[in-house]
């Protein structure tokens, strides 16, 4: 089988760039630890409250250290449960100081959902039976829309909350 000289050059340059590209991806993933979220932590979707993190009192924002927070969320059709405020009303707006490290932990007791803090790389599939988790540093201030970005039923577009990162 004959390959034209120019085609050889084209393919060598193309495949060469591909190899470099994949090495960069691999370096990022395995050395810098930027793998997409995948912890394989399972949970009984019909009994999520048996898990410490998803007991009603542990939902929402918990400060664990000076700059460290854990945010536990139950995603269900068509609501994000961040727990309640002092008056017992459901929380739809959460606040985090700029520069803090946040561990997001989300699970679903019903169908598949998405969890995307729009405009950031906090973007996870939430599936019944698994805990989706991702640690991130909130570097910029502002109001971020948290949206369900995986179809979960006819009220899917009404499933949202907001995150405020303040100075």
């Amino acid at each position: 089988m004959h390959l034209h000289k120019f085609e050889k050059i084209w393919l060598i340059v193309g495949i060469g760039s591909l190899v470099v590209f994949l090495l960069i991806l691999g370096f990022g993933a395995f050395w810098l630890g930027t793998h997409p979220q995948s912890h394989g932590v399972t949970i009984d979707p019909q009994n999520i409250e048996a898990h410490e993190a998803f007991k009603p009192e542990n939902l929402g924002v918990t400060q664990v250290e000076e700059d460290k927070y854990i945010i536990n969320v139950v995603a269900s059709a068509f609501n994000y449960d961040f727990g309640t405020d002092e008056d017992g009303a459901p929380l739809k707006h959460i606040r985090i100081p700029k520069g803090s490290t946040v561990l997001w932990q989300v699970t679903s007791p019903d169908v598949v959902h998405g969890f995307n803090v729009a405009g950031t790389n906090v973007n996870m599939m939430v599936e019944p039976g698994y805990i989706s988790s991702l640690e991130t540093e909130m570097k910029s201030t502002g109001e971020f829309t948290i949206v369900c970005n995986e179809y979960c039923g006819t009220g899917h577009h009404l499933m949202y909350a907001t995150l405020e990162v303040y100075e």
């Binding site: 995307n116 405009g119 109001e143 829309t145 949206v147 995986e150 577009h157 949202y160 907001t162």
Partner: peptide
């Protein structure tokens, strides 16, 4: 800009992003 796919019209509570 973070806009989700597969979603009907929604103002997402009127956030700036939405």
């Amino acid at each position: 800009l973070g806009g989700p796919r597969r979603s009907s019209y929604s103002e997402y509570g009127g956030t700036e992003q939405a």
